[in-house]
């Protein structure tokens, strides 16, 4: 029964940026079924409402989950404000996952824009845990400013540990930024992957996804190997409310992750 939110308690919160918070939650009693990277939960802030949020961490310990939330509306602001010890309601898991196994034997290319890095984080962890099943792991992330970059410490550790090629770029460098400036697609020039044997996982604003996917197609990555995570208005997450339609897709059910081969013609239609 997934219809009623299950109480989860906030056990840790970290302020990622001025408007973005990562909450680690654990079930008060009953846990939801296990989440796969790329799937999402409906998070209920008592008395305010529900929003869909992808998992940004799947922890073995006590069925904990991490969710990274940006405060842009009433509900997301209430979720972001949840203190440690506070209870939230969760429903899920919903939607399709990234399906990392699609990349087995080939290169993994992760491209994130802004908060789009959050849903990709459990995928990156899984790829690192499954080292040997994949060839090279490239992680390319774009952010608005250096201060807006999510999980900066983790990315630094990842880059230092060097099982992955990590590159970060920003739109607006502040004083003292010594990294790349430009769109995330510019980082593709310097990434090391064999396009024909690469599976790309892309998440960010839709215009960034389209630009990235086009670039990857041009470089020779097959369309069905470009996995993108999309967003539309969502109310129920169970395929019954009709809000999240993108043409034939119900994104809560047939998404959020889908192949670019499937969605490219849909994204090309205005106001679909």
């Amino acid at each position: 029964m997934t219809e009623v939110p299950v109480p989860y308690q906030v056990v840790r919160r970290s302020q990622e940026t001025t408007d973005t918070t990562t909450l680690v939650v654990e079930p008060v009693a009953r846990a939801l079924p296990p989440f796969r990277p790329g799937q999402f939960a409906m998070i209920y802030a008592f008395g305010v409402g529900e929003i869909p949020v992808s998992v940004s961490g799947i922890l073995d310990h006590r069925h904990r989950l991490a969710h990274t939330v940006r405060a842009v509306g009433a509900v997301s602001a209430a979720v972001c404000a949840a203190a440690e010890g506070q209870e939230l309601g969760l429903r899920g898991p919903f939607g399709t996952g990234w399906e990392l196994e699609r990349a087995a034997g080939g290169d993994v290319l992760v491209v994130a824009g802004g908060i789009g890095l959050a849903p990709l984080r459990p995928l990156i962890r899984a790829a690192l845990a499954g080292a040997g099943r994949y060839r090279r792991l490239n992680l390319l992330a774009g952010a608005r400013t250096p201060d807006d970059l999510l999980y900066a410490d983790e990315l630094r550790c990842l880059a230092d540990a060097a099982p992955a090629h990590v590159a970060v770029t920003v739109d607006r460098p502040g004083h003292g930024w010594l990294g790349s400036v430009g769109m995330v697609t510019q980082l593709l020039n310097r990434a090391d992957f064999a396009p024909g044997e690469t599976t790309a996982f892309v998440c960010g604003p839709e215009a960034m996804i389209r630009a990235t996917a086009r670039d990857l197609r041009h470089r020779g990555v097959p369309a069905d190997r470009i996995r993108v995570s999309l967003e539309r208005n969502m109310r129920c997450a169970t395929g019954h409310c009709g809000h999240c339609q993108l043409g034939p897709l119900l994104l809560c059910r047939d998404g959020p992750v889908a192949g670019y081969d499937r969605v490219a013609p849909l994204l090309a239609v205005r106001e679909l």
Binding site: V28, Y44, F46
Partner: peptide, 16 residues
């Protein structure tokens, strides 16, 4: 669809 109650300790009870 459901009712939710919050007790003084902040515990949520959500029932169909």
């Amino acid at each position: 669809q459901w009712s939710a109650d919050r007790d003084p300790d902040g515990q949520l009870t959500i029932v169909p």
